[in-house]
Structures are given as C-alpha cells and as structure tokens.
Design a binder for these strands. Structure first.
Length: 423
RNA sequence: GCAGCUGUAGCUCAGUUGGUUUAGAGCGCUGGUCUGUGGAACCAGAGGUCGGUGGUUCAAAUCCACCCAGCUGUACCA
C-alpha cells in the first residue's frame, strides 16, 4: 500500500467549482483598485526574514510563532510572506518610489503563510487582497482605503458588514497612555487571567482586548485611549469619521480595538460581518503605519493599508447566498466514430477554436451514445456528428443540443464557418 | 499554543449488545438495454486494507492507547 499524499495541513486545493468565486473576487478587486487610482505591485513569495522581524515587530505573534522561516543553500535567512505591508514598504524603498509622485497607491493579491492552527476561514496558506498608500498622512486617505473594502464587499454581494474603527494615537503620546493603563491595572494584577498578566508586561494595550471572564470587570472602568487622544490624532480621527459618514459607510467606534502589529498608529480598523461572532470572521483589517518605513531604514514616511482574506470573503459571499451557474465546458462537442474520423475531428476542432469556439472532441473509442451523453453533460450548444455515412459523404451532422432547431448536414470544410459566423 | 467534538466508497450517510465467510444504500462515474443520436427509465460494473499504527479478544468498522486530519471554541489573525 502506497501512502496517499494529501495537501499539507492548513492548505487547500481550489477546485474548478470554486473558481467562479475566485474569479469574481479577483475581477472586482482589480476593478475597485483601478477606480481608486491604485497601481499593481507584485512582490516575491518570500523575503529576507528581517523585513518582517524588524518591520512587523519581533514580539508580534506573527513573527514570534507563525512565520515560516528557512535558510537556503546560500545561508540566507528567509521567510515566506506572512503579511504584505512590510514587503510593500521594502519595495517602496528599494525602487526609490519616494521619487514618484506622492503618495504612491499600491495594490496586490498575494499568498500569505502563517504557521497557526487551521480552522474554517483560517489557513496556513491564504491569499490577501492588499492596498497600501505610502507618502500621505492625510486622514482622507484613511477613509479612502476603508472605502475600497466597502466598495469591494458591496460589489460582491456581501451585505451586513460593519467597519470597526479605532485610533491608537501616535507612538509618543501612547506611551503616556500605556503608563496610565498599567497604573490602573497594577492593583488588580493578581485577579487577572494568566494571559492578561503576561499582556501587562509585554503588550498592555491588549489587556483591553481580553475575552477572559476574569478580566471583564476591569475593562469598563479602564481608561480608554480614544477618550484621550493627543490633539493631532484626535483631529485626524474626526476627519476619518466625518468622511466615512458622508459616504454612507457604516462604522462603529471600537475603543477596545487593538491590532496585533507593532507598527500601527492612529487609525486602525477591521471589517466584520454584523451577525457573526466567530473568532476568525474578520474579513478585512488594517491601519496606519507612519513609522514603518523608518524602521526599515528609510526616511520618515507615513503610510496606511489593509489586507483582506479572499478565502474569508468567499465564505461571506456564500453566506450571503451568492452563487454561480455551472459554466459550460465547451461551446461545441464533436462526436465521432468511424474509420479515419480522428484526423477529421482533430482538424475541425482546430478550425473552430481559431474562430473562438471552445471545442471538445469525444473519446474515439466510445459508443455514439456515450459520446452524446458527454456532449450533453458538457453544456455545449452544438454537437457535431461524424460517423461512417458522414465520412463517406464528406458532410458532418450539426445537431443543436439546447433549442428546438433541427439537425442539418454541412460539408466538413464549411462547418467552422457556419458555427463561427454565428458566434 | 490550550480545550472539546468528529473521521465507513469521489460526495451524503446506514451498519443493531464486538460474531454468517466477498462491509451496504443513494447520488456521481463507466458500460449495456439502443455495434448511428444526449436529457428519461431499467440493468450491470468499477470504486473501501471502515483515517493510521499498536493493543485487548477465539473474533474488532464496533472496545482501549497513541498518532494524523477536519470541525468548534479560545489565544491570535485575513
């Protein structure tokens, strides 16, 4: 018994029946990006690991526990892309995009790799639609990228989603806030969950994000960052909200929204289904990262962007009842069974394809009945029948498979012209 | 990472308190009834070491242990 191979844990095959969903998402993503004036950028599947270790932050879960890293034969320390933002910033610096007209608006669809526990909507390899705007600190750009996702989901038939919006201020003022937060929690430290005790030291902001029962009593009275933003961040936040409001984008302020990446400042957001309480239901999320380019060795340069998981978008589409008719696998199906019919069928198929008709040739050895069944199942509009009589007379039978039209005889050399003309 | 649930043909599932040698059904697939005409019907066939390994037993799909995979929640995140 040979072992049966299977797709690696957390990866999946996208079967033909699912391709219409992918095609729809990819098409609409491209269109929405175009409508907003974004340029496509593709980056490699893997990068020097430092891009993420420095860029994403080496205490983040993504880098600490989830990154696929490896050393190649040349002793280079590499990582499969776990998120796109640092990669796009690396490309921005490497290609001197600072000398392009600012800001630079970029988009992509890119596979992402994270070594975490697979579940529905959570995979070790998934694909994200991502947009980044580098070189602008305008709050209107924050609203713009949120608007891109909003437009995309709307075009794909996804209803009942809401933007969760927050601001986590700039890095400087945030230090003061974190101090206050720790002062608040310090007396209660013993009563907190184990996770939260750890958070207290390593990432105090996440204290507010806890879902543990024991931590709930302390959350309400805790100081909220959105209530004490620095003047600059406050004005920025208000501009974003006003813009979203004017565009009719449904959002709610989430004072507890803290995202897992170190580089975020000011605007952070997620888009979630209104009704769905699942842990991994977020379909898109992002935020501002004004310090990131500098961390990667560039000049101070503001930026903002998001990622949205295509697999999760498709799950939402299905929940919203979006479906696609099974596509016909051919326009024309050639049924043939006669001495010497193979070259005739083969050549006829080539002629038809030249005229743009997708054409499939039946299996030479099978009975007429079997081939006709296959022709019907293919969804083809027309069957072409070539048997002994046809070979003798040099004419093929054209049999419409869908309408009421009668079948007719057409000389071999005119078949492609007859069918192609109507196409 | 932690906790729980699940695992029998390609798919959806039956399988009685462990006990008849070749483990079943529907759908799908292939073929036939109809060696030249699809959609319907009928008939037949192929396809499973019952997730894997080891153990208990005269006997395991059924009981036990471990492993693998999927799902659910949680930590995180898209």
């Amino acid at each position: 018994m040979t072992t049966r191979y299977q797709a690696p844990r957390g990866t999946q095959d996208v079967l033909p029946e699912m391709q219409p969903y992918w095609q729809a998402v990819l098409d609409q993503a491209r269109e929405v990006a175009r409508l907003h004036g974004y340029h496509r950028l593709d980056t490699p599947m893997f990068e020097q690991a430092g891009v993420f270790e420095k860029g994403s932050g080496d205490t983040t879960d993504i880098v600490e526990k989830e990154m696929y890293t490896f050393t190649d034969r040349g002793e280079e320390h590499l990582a499969l892309t776990p998120e796109w933002t640092p990669a796009s910033c690396r490309a921005y610096l490497e290609h001197g995009m600072a000398s392009w007209p600012q800001p630079v608006r970029l988009w992509t669809t890119h596979p992402m790799f994270r070594y975490d526990r697979p579940q529905k909507g959570r995979y070790r390899q998934h694909t994200q639609f991502g947009c980044e705007v580098i070189g602008s600190e305008d709050a209107l750009v924050d609203a713009e990228v949120i608007g891109i996702l909003w437009a995309l989901y709307g075009r794909l038939g996804i209803r009942d989603v809401v933007v969760r919006l927050g601001s986590i201020d700039d890095h400087g003022p945030r230090r003061d806030y974190v101090q206050r937060l720790q002062d608040y929690y310090r007396p209660h430290l013993e009563k907190l969950s184990e996770d939260s005790k750890r958070r207290f030291e390593r990432n105090p902001l996440r204290l507010l994000d806890s879902k543990d029962e024991r931590d709930q009593p302390f959350k309400d009275a805790a100081p909220k960052l959105v209530d004490m933003l620095s003047p600059g961040a406050q004005a920025h936040h208000e501009t974003v909200m006003a813009a979203l409001q004017s565009a009719g984008i449904a959002f709610e302020i989430d004072p507890l929204l803290v995202r897992g990446l170190d580089y975020y400042n000011r605007t952070v957001f997620e888009i979630v289904p209104t009704e769905d309480e699942r842990a991994q239901s977020t379909i898109g999320g992002g935020g501002r990262y004004d310090g990131l380019i500098e961390i990667l060795g560039g000049p101070p340069t503001p930026g903002i962007g998001f990622g949205s998981g295509i697999e999760r978008i498709i799950l939402e589409m299905q929940k919203n009842g979006v479906s696609f008719d099974a596509a016909a696998s051919a326009d024309v199906y050639i049924v043939h069974r006669a001495e010497g019919s193979q070259p005739v069928a083969f050549r006829m198929a080539a002629e038809l394809r030249k005229r743009g008709l997708s054409t499939v040739i039946g299996e030479s050895g099978r009975s007429f009945k079997a081939q006709m069944r296959a022709a019907n199942a293919s969804g083809a509009q027309q069957a072409i029948i070539i048997g002994d009589d046809e070979m003798a007379s040099g004419t093929a039978v054209l049999k419409p498979l869908r309408g009421d039209a009668e079948q007719r005889k057409v000389p071999f050399e005119r078949v492609a012209g007859e069918l192609g003309a109507g196409a």
